[in-house]
């Protein structure tokens, strides 16, 4: 307890520490926002709550890590993970998700939970349960007399995340497929009547989500660490962000993602790294509670 208080008082004594935490948090949060955006996409379009979200991220990370170990340049791992996870997402859609779309929500939740277990365990069998990361040989930038250090690798990661997000947004806005996806999200039956092949749209959306997660994972492995069983925490973060921001609210998702990243860094600073998962889960409970109170005001329940 004293340790926690000491850590908190440190924040007030040296305000610069806050800046460092926020910068670190935002850089990680950008990646959270990416997978959360994928979740919001799948949730909004086909009303599937994907609990395997985080495991897609980790799987993408392992694709990049494996390629890097084969001597491929780490930055090429990002598009590679995008493609591999696209295929994986498509296969999973055809095998499982297509059969749970019209069912009650718990079915999709549990089915994707099962998928999450399978992915995590297969990764564990293939690569072992050690934490892994790719060390990039780039410099670190120093600001404020060396107090703030920003590794170029991390900066690169954030830029790639931003580029990917921009690409997806432009695609959703301007391409025919993007328009079809948005139409299906509003009313699948109306879209079907108007001749949109919703089955194709669903398959595309789910694969796209999986690919986004994969690319995010390939960046995560460069700026952070991955481990086969870290998936569930990533899934929970994605849920926290989407719950906080609401569906179809892209700026909200980005803001919430960056915010969650920063809050988690604060949690890690105050409580220590051992509480990382606890902090993520507590954030989930807090966000749910806030949303609950908001809904209570208009006499609705959170559903």
């Amino acid at each position: 307890m004293d340790q926690f208080l000491a850590n908190i008082s440190l924040l007030f004594e040296f305000p610069i520490v806050n800046l460092k935490i926020v910068i670190d948090g935002v850089m990680i949060g950008a990646l959270f926002a990416l997978s959360a955006y994928g979740l919001a996409l799948v949730w909004g379009v086909m009303n599937v709550k994907n609990l395997a979200q985080g495991d897609f991220v980790i799987a993408g990370g392992y694709v990049a890590w494996w390629l890097a170990n084969q001597g491929v340049h780490p930055l090429l791992g990002v598009p590679a993970a995008f493609v591999v996870l696209w295929i994986l997402g498509w296969v999973i859609y055809k095998l499982v998700i297509t059969r749970v779309i019209e069912r009650d929500l718990f079915t999709s939740l549990l089915a994707t939970f099962g998928i999450a277990i399978i992915i995590a365990q297969v990764l564990n069998l293939l690569f072992g349960s050690d934490t892994q990361s790719i060390a990039l040989k780039y410099d670190t930038l120093y600001f404020m007399d060396g107090f703030i250090d920003v590794p170029i690798a991390k900066l690169l990661g954030v830029l790639m995340a931003a580029a990917l997000a921009t690409g997806v947004i432009l695609f959703m806005k301007w391409s025919r497929m993007g328009q079809a996806i948005r139409a299906t999200a509003q009313d699948a039956r109306a879209a079907r009547v108007l001749g949109i092949n919703t089955e194709k749209v669903y398959a595309f959306t789910f694969s796209l989500n999986s690919a986004i997660c994969g690319a995010a994972g390939a960046i995560v492995v460069m700026v952070w660490v991955i481990q086969p069983f870290y998936g569930i925490t990533h899934s929970i973060r994605a849920f926290v962000i989407v719950t906080a921001a609401g569906l179809g609210n892209l700026p909200g998702v980005i803001a919430a993602g960056l915010g969650i990243g920063a809050l988690e860094q604060y949690g890690a600073h105050i409580f220590g790294i051992g509480y990382q998962q606890a902090v993520a889960v507590l954030l989930l409970l807090i966000v749910l509670l806030i949303r609950l109170v908001q809904q209570k005001r208009v006499r609705k329940s959170l559903q």
Binding site: K49, L109, T243, L284, L285, L288, K296, L302, Q303
Partner: peptide, 17 residues
Amino acid sequence: GLRGPYFAIGTLGVAIA
């Protein structure tokens, strides 16, 4: 106060926490 998937995720959160 939570319904459907939110209840499932919320209780999962309680257990993990």
